[in-house]
Design a binder for these strands. Structure first.
Lengths: 110, 110
DNA sequence: ACCATTTATCGTATATTTACGATATACTAT
DNA sequence: ATAGTATATCGTAAATATACGATAAATGGT
């Protein structure tokens, strides 16, 4: 049992769920905030702002990167991260579309 | 180790993350779609539409209910579920706020 | 009262997530 | 070359999520 069935759903559902999963931990939202507020998006800066170990922050960054919400560039021994605004906007607009489409579909249930 | 640190972040981050977590599985997005499309929001209808066992659907419904996105009313031996539009709208607007606020904060990073 | 139907919950197995410290890697500066 | 700094990755432990079948609970119909 417990074979995950994510693949058996529609593409739209899967993509939206993946983005939502990326934002499903407060640390990752906090990371996005730091990235947006600082000009220099150095990993160390993020570590300083969060109550987490460096390795944990790195792991969260990796997930944000995998989801496409964040991009990373190597800058010497440092890594410069920044928000992928295009992807973020796409996610946000997908979420809006879902909301308004559902609302439209809803008749007078309950 | 592995004591979760969700509580150590801001309230806004935690709330947004909680909503996002509720939408972080395609099955739950699919459930919302079924709820929006049908007038009668009977659990059994949802089970019929999804490739999941009844108990699993019930579990997903519980999570949506815990997150506040869905409400359930007992109707005889059946349960009538429906979307909590107010909560859903609040989530959607919080997500929009986050996006636009971050974008505003962002200077010329990267 | 009894049976069928519907749904929630329990028990359980497995997968994934979250967290940390330790280590490896990659670059800078001396 | 060597030392120092920054970050990613590895190994690991514990918590949570995901899924199922089985069972319990609650109602409706006969």
């Amino acid at each position: 049992m417990a074979i995950h069935k994510r693949e058996e759903f529609g593409k739209t559902e899967q993509e939206l769920a993946e983005f939502a999963k990326a934002l499903s931990h407060p640390a990752r939202i906090a990371i996005l905030k730091v990235l947006a507020q600082r000009n220099e998006c150095i990993c160390g800066d993020i570590v300083d702002e969060l109550p987490l170990a460096q390795s944990t922050v790195s792991q969260h960054l990796k997930e944000l990167k995998n989801a496409g919400l964040v991009q990373g560039t190597i800058d010497g021994p440092r890594s410069c991260y920044c928000i992928n605004w295009k992807a973020f906007e796409q996610f946000n607009s997908s979420m809006n579309t879902l909301f308004f489409k559902l609302k439209e579909d809803a008749a007078k249930c309950c």
